[in-house]
Structures are given as C-alpha cells and as structure tokens.
Design a protein around this nucleic acid. Structure first.
Lengths: 182, 182
DNA sequence: GTCTATACACCGATAGAC
DNA sequence: GTCTATCGGTGTATAGAC
C-alpha cells in the first residue's frame, strides 16, 4: 500500500466526521490500518493525514470537475458535464464538501492556503468558460462565484433538510442560470 | 447567572470550534464558568449545552431575521431589512452558521430535528413574503430555497477565501434577485 | 511495514466541601 | 452555585519486536 492509496482510504473518515471527529480509532477502523502503519505513512500525525486527504480530494476534484471545463467545445455543454459530475462527486448532496467542512470549522486556520487555492481554482475555471460564452470578465467572475456558492449552499441544505431533490434541482438549473444573458 | 445567559456565553465557542472542537476546557475558559457550574446548568452535559445553544441561536435568529419578514409593509422593503440584519448576524460572513456547521459535520444526527426545523422556518417565512409579492407558491418556495442556499454558500466562501466582500455583495443583490419576475 | 504495548495529556463527567 | 479534586475512558503519539 502506498501513500496515495492510504490517503484515498482516509477521505471518507474526514468527510464524514470532520477534522476533530476523525479520531485515530475511527481512521484505523475505517482504513484497516493500525496506528503504527498510519504513522509510518504520515510521520507528522493527524495533521499530515488531513493535509494528504485535502491534496487527494483536490486532485480528484480537478480531474473530474475542473478538467471537463477546460476541454474544447460548447461552453454550455461543458457546464452540463460539470453538473453531472458534481452529482456523482457529492453523492447527490449527501456527502459533505471537505472545503466547506474545514472552512466553517476550526481547522480553517491550519489549511487555509489549500482551501482558498482550491476554491479559487474552481471559480477561475468556471469563469473562463463563461467568458468564452461571451460574458465580460467581471460578470463571468461574479456568476462563477454565485454558482459555487449555490452549490455549497445546496450541500448544506440537502444535508440539513435531508432532501436530495434540492441538490439535484440546483444542478439541473445551473447551466441555465449561468448561461442566461439578462 | 441564569440558564439563558449561560447559553448566550456558550454560543461563540460552538460557533467557532464546532461540536467536537468545543471542549469543556475551551467552554470553561470562554465563559468563565467552572466545570461544576456548567454541569449545574446543564446536568446532561455537553449535548445539552449544544442543544441550549441551538435553541438560543434559533430564538435570536427568529427575532432579528424572521420577525421583520412577518411585518406588514412592502415585500421588497422587508427583504432589505432581512439582508441588513443578516450582515450583522453573521458579522459580514466571518462568523459561521451553527446550522451549517452541525449539518455538514457529525452532529447532524443528534440535532437533525432542530436543524431541519430552523431551516424550514427560514425558507417558509421568506417564501410567504415572496408570495405576497405576487409569485406563485411553487416559484416562491424555490426562490426562497435559492436565497438561503446562496447565503449559506456565501458563508462558506467568505470564510474559505477570507473575503467579506463576497458576502456583502450577495446580500446587496439578494433583494433584486428575489424580486425579479423573469 | 505492520504488530503489541504503552506513554501522557485531555476528554466528558462526577463527588463532596463550602 | 461554585470550588477543588478526581474518576474512567479516550485522544494523539511513540517505542521496540518482528
């Protein structure tokens, strides 16, 4: 088992319990790795584990969500692909976003650099597509921010209301919302 | 010191650290209350403390955010008042929303009833105003959901990007977004 | 690399004096 | 009501054998 696969197994623990709630007991049980193995892969302990998880998820997110945005093709089409992939990535809104979890909670201080970088990458890529679609730079940026906010808010409400329909509706309406010219 | 004032002092600890991160040491230090005092007010321990905090914040929220929505007067005006009060309530987006914090994290199971009730109350009150403004029931409901999502998302991004301008922009545009007829 | 055993601090919670 | 002292359990992290 290499570090990447170890990181992969850690993801769901932090995603489900947050940084404080992700105890080594839970991590050990969920991954099948003993404490000693964990500290072999991550000598700096839990903080390094969370860091690795963030890196892993960011890479995964970039590959499945951001990469389609950078493809050639009709802007609207690319946004539809992103929406479709988001639905999978967040399991219809039932799985939390690590960035949101870490932003709102305590560990925002520890990982602020990574969090802010990841959110900006998402917004930047989205804005670029919208510019290609004919929007001005400023409008595209704002609209991209609005889209990411809408999605993050949908993740909160979907879990808070225990209602996946909400998340799906937001994703369906996303292409139309972003594309319109008003 | 009564239970209400005690709850009030607890708020910021849970808001800042989340449920798991709000240790009794931190609570004790932040409130100036010793462990024994805390257990005098909250015999069932930390879970009861979090419950009390949720109740206190819900009441505070209802008084400052929801109550203006129920006033008589022009719908647009009432929404502007809500926006203005939200800015204060969330300190320009720098303070997290307890509902979001608990929704995304582990304690969603423990407090799901209260969380979902509070979110629904917000949406319902907002939707009612929009109906008075002339929107159909379904449209009003959806638009109200969108507004709450936008705000929750703004809270995530404002903290994640460390940029209060984002939160302020969302609040400014909120009345226009909700009012428009398209 | 993974195991067992363990160190030490802190967790939530309680007891009893005042 | 608040204090001091303390309980059992669990937290993160380490040591050393294999």
């Amino acid at each position: 088992m290499d570090k990447i696969e170890a990181s992969q197994r850690l993801v769901n623990v932090f995603r489900q319990y947050g940084y404080e709630g992700a105890t080594l007991s839970r991590i050990s049980k969920a991954t099948g790795l003993g404490r000693a193995s964990l500290y072999h892969h991550f000598p700096d302990g839990k903080q390094q584990m969370a860091q690795a998880v963030l890196e892993y998820v960011n890479q995964w997110f970039a590959a499945t969500i951001l990469e389609p945005l950078r493809q050639s093709g009709e802007p609207l089409k690319r946004i539809q692909v992103m929406s479709s992939n988001l639905k999978q990535f967040y399991n219809c809104g039932q799985d939390a976003c690590l960035l949101a979890l870490f932003s709102l909670g305590e560990p925002n201080d520890l990982f602020h650099e990574q969090i802010s970088q990841a959110l900006n990458a998402w917004i930047d890529n989205l804005a670029k597509v919208l510019e290609e679609g004919g929007l001005s730079e400023m409008t595209a940026r704002q609209r991209a921010e609005d889209a990411v906010m809408q999605i993050q808010g949908a993740l909160v409400l979907t879990r808070g209301l225990d209602n996946t329909a909400l998340f799906e509706r937001v994703l369906e309406q996303l292409p139309r919302l972003l594309g319109k010219v008003d």
